[in-house]
Design a protein around this nucleic acid. Structure first.
Lengths: 351, 351
DNA sequence: GTGAAAGCGCTAACAG
DNA sequence: CTGTTAGCGCTTTCAC
């Protein structure tokens, strides 16, 4: 475990650092270094268990082989799974991942990015951004940084991103609710509400209502603050569920919201779907086994990670090369998993 | 977003790099630099949005302000939550986190650690290790690296770690099953089975059986390979559930196993707990809402992360100082969450 | 075919 | 009080 550096290795071999460096970086042939010498170097490096100091290399080359990932909360299974997927792709390509949670705080996010990009010299970043404006990212890109946005995009952002079909998924889910006889459908979103994935889901929800001649009731659209999900859901849900305006179905915008709703509904001794239908955008493994199983829109987490890293790699590799092609925007399909939490109001009313 | 370095900053101010560096690192007073100069430097640095290049600093100081976290799979909620907790503590102290998944592969784990420690110059690492022997870690520590093990420990490992009371939790859980009238209790573990958290859980299970005069049946102890949970659970569970040896209760060693069991049991059209009881070590939010809710041993994830980082910080700070005190071993309590998945065989048999 | 030497951006003796 | 200078370990140009 002794620290052994290029210099020591070169000295033991009786050659120069240059030679060793060249060979170890696979440039031996290009520089016409004899096979024999190359083999000796390789062998000795192995033997002495030489590991290059990536920090030093990074300082010299300007490449850190680190990529940064910024999400709102790594403990959310949605992001945890995406992280894993990115990590897999990254490590196959020799990159390490620094993961940071922004807690949906615009300023914290900016600081993290600056730290990663300028401090740690990250070669690229993947971010599920909570920024409202694109300037920050556009500037970063203009300065030559490689960036891929995931999950959400930003108005006027000019760059690569991978998102999912939020509008379509929300539309389909809402329509499913309507087809099951629900009319008073409330939607719970998460703040900040301006993020694109949320606005698109809200659009899908509204358009589905409209298509079926249901007028949108703004009291049925509640924004739950990211930092107080449990408390707010409890409060807002109780309000939504009482009085003659009481809703008969819930469409929540993410998995945490769904879990909290479950809690509140259980505490109120209400039954899903008899008293209230519950559906979620974003699926969890356990939604299949809950009582009742939850109808949800599943997102292709694995693929989001793979595609995002693919775009980023492409960006990083062409950086010092020719002009970038125009930016790529990948929109992945989602899948509605129909389970039991919607019931069928028509039948229920009949019986 | 222009790249501005110490030199530029110093030149604009008309002073030397040293001065700027000293001031920015809070050593202005110690070196008796006038308040006035200090303020000017600080102000200009802010103004020009100077961010030190951490790579360069790292090369010079030997400190990277990066800590590595290695777990088997970051997408497992148990590890995802611990990660988040570590990240929070780390960022409060100016450290960034590189997270890697080892996939329970001993060699991959070693490589990741070498990469982190020698390549990225990580100041410390926290690992949920899959090593069988402690040599690797003991060597690393002897070489002056800061290490904290979490979740699992290793025989003959001499260093800090934080684990939970696996034995006690497993004992209590098994006893609960027995008290509810179960006798044929199978345990599903995950490979590699030698990891301490698993062996301790198995011990707790066996001792609880013994205490209640139930002889341990080795056919009731199944090891599920980490890489093929779903397939193996399906196969093994079917075997366990048929014939006159059929088990009446299941104690699974982690959350993934529990989810897979749920799947198989559902597919077999069996009822929990009437046909089979299901309990898990490690709790998931959704276990409260499954059909039926799952009795599980909850682990203090938040605290594991906090304590682990605390130990690591302590280690890193005292590194260049005086001799370390003797290593600290923190064992956190777990909590048995009794829910409905155990039923009560006595009553059931009676009725 | 191979080596000497410069330099990435920063810190910290040491000098004055 | 402030500046000069020598590296940290690596890559890479240029010279031989």
């Amino acid at each position: 475990m002794k620290k052994i550096d290029l210099d020591k290795l070169a000295k033991t071999l009786g050659v120069s650092k240059t030679l060793v460096s060249l060979v170890l970086n696979g440039k031996g042939d290009r520089y016409g270094i004899s096979k024999k010498t190359q083999n000796e170097v390789l062998k000795k490096a192995q033997e002495m268990n030489y590991k290059p100091n990536l920090i030093a290399r990074g300082l010299r080359t300007g490449k850190s082989n680190i990529i940064g990932l910024i999400v709102s909360d790594i403990s959310n299974p949605f992001y945890a799974k995406i992280s894993r997927s990115i990590e897999d792709s990254a490590s196959k390509n020799g990159y390490n991942l620094i993961i940071c949670s922004s807690e949906e705080d615009e300023n914290k996010e900016k600081e993290l990015i600056e730290l990663l990009v300028r401090g740690q010299n990250a070669d690229g970043i993947i971010v599920s951004s909570t920024q409202q404006k694109a300037v920050f990212f556009n500037e970063l890109q203009a300065a030559g940084k490689s960036i891929v946005l995931i999950d959400r995009t930003i108005p006027l952002y000019e760059g690569n991103y991978v998102t999912v079909n939020n509008y379509g998924g929300a539309f389909e889910l809402t329509e499913h609710l309507i087809k099951n006889g629900h009319r008073k459908i409330a939607m719970l979103t998460i703040s900040p509400q301006f993020i694109s994935s949320i606005t698109q889901r809200v659009e899908g929800y509204k358009d589905a209502l409209k298509k079926h001649g249901i007028v949108f009731n703004k009291n049925y659209l509640k924004e739950i603050p990211f930092n107080d999900i449990s408390g707010s859901v409890n409060r807002d849900l109780k309000a939504l569920l009482k009085g003659k305006q009481a809703v008969d179905a819930l469409f929540v915008a993410n998995n945490n919201l769904a879990v909290s709703c479950f809690e509140t509904i259980n505490n109120m001794r209400l039954k899903i779907p008899a008293d209230i239908a519950l559906t979620s955008f974003d699926d969890l493994d356990m939604f299949k086994f809950s009582d009742p199983p939850i109808t949800a829109v599943a997102q292709p987490v694995q693929e989001i990670g793979e595609k995002a890293f693919g775009l980023l790699l492409n960006l990083m590799e062409n950086k010092s090369g020719k002009k970038q092609g125009k930016s790529k925007e990948i929109k992945l399909p989602v899948e509605l998993k129909i389970r039991k939490s919607c019931g069928n109001r028509a039948k229920m009313v009949k019986s």
